[in-house]
Amino acid sequence: MKTILSFAALTLLAVSSAAMAQDKQTATADFIGRDGKASGRATLTAAANGGVLIEAEVAGLPANKWVAFHVHETGSCDAAGHHESAGKHFNPTNAEHGLLSAMGPHAGDMPNQYVDQDGVLRAQVFDGMVTLDGKTDGVRGRALIVHANSDDYRSQPAGDAGERLACGVIK
């Protein structure tokens, strides 16, 4: 009996350790729309050699349109304030905005995403400039934002991306 309990305890410890390691390698962000209602979710997974894969599905967006998708600096999604509480784009290196900028991009700059005819954005985006829990490049505790317009990848400071339609705090 003593051997069985010890084996069971070791198994439980191994499973708990694996779960804790998994928690450090993944994060989620639950999106809310401008109306304050739940509109989707993103799952973020740390890549073994750096960077983060972001898989998102967000509903209630304008159909058949390209929209900007960014990491913002503050983990706050106040729908009443049109998600302005999320602050500026996440930019730990003080780079210029834009994937096509000679002095950019921000760590939070990501490619535009397409919203299909059903008004749902479905995306898999890799951001190689961030980590989940790094000291300066970590995104856990920050926010993901879906904007109303596409990013022009050049205009300062935010690519002329327009209003913030959906916001999710990365946890």
Rank of each mutant, 00 (worst) to 15 (best):
H89F: 11
D137A: 14
R34M: 14
M110G: 07
M1R: 08
D109Q: 10
G81R: 14
Q113A: 14
G138W: 04
D160N: 15
G33Y: 08
D109M: 08
A79W: 05
A86F: 00
T3R: 11
D23V: 07
G60D: 03
D152N: 15
P157T: 12
T74R: 09
G134D: 07
G134Q: 09
Q113F: 00
E57S: 14
M110K: 04
D137L: 11
M110R: 02
A9K: 10
N64T: 03
T26H: 10
G138L: 06
D127L: 09
T28F: 15
R154C: 04
A8D: 06
C167K: 04
A86C: 10
S6R: 11
M1K: 10
V130L: 03
S16E: 09
K88D: 12
I54G: 06
A56P: 03
Y114I: 00
D137E: 14
V139G: 05
L144P: 04
L10K: 12
T131C: 02
Y153M: 07
A48R: 09
L132V: 02
H89V: 11
H106P: 04
I145R: 09
L5S: 14
G168A: 07
T131V: 00
A38H: 09
D30S: 13
V120T: 15
L144T: 02
K2F: 11
V125S: 01
A8K: 06
L132R: 04
E84I: 12
D116A: 15
A107K: 01
E96R: 10
L144F: 13
A8V: 13
H82E: 06
V15T: 12
A143V: 08
T3N: 09
G162Y: 04
M129L: 11
N49D: 15
V58G: 07
A42L: 01
W66K: 11
A161R: 07
A107H: 12
V15C: 12
K37M: 08
S6V: 14
I170G: 07
G138M: 05
N91E: 05
A21N: 11
N49C: 01
K2Q: 10
A27M: 08
T93Q: 08
V120W: 05
E57F: 00
V120Y: 04
M129R: 15
A38R: 14
A19L: 15
G81A: 10
L100S: 15
A79T: 02
S17I: 11
G159E: 06
A86K: 04
Q124M: 06
H70Q: 13
T45Q: 13
S150I: 00
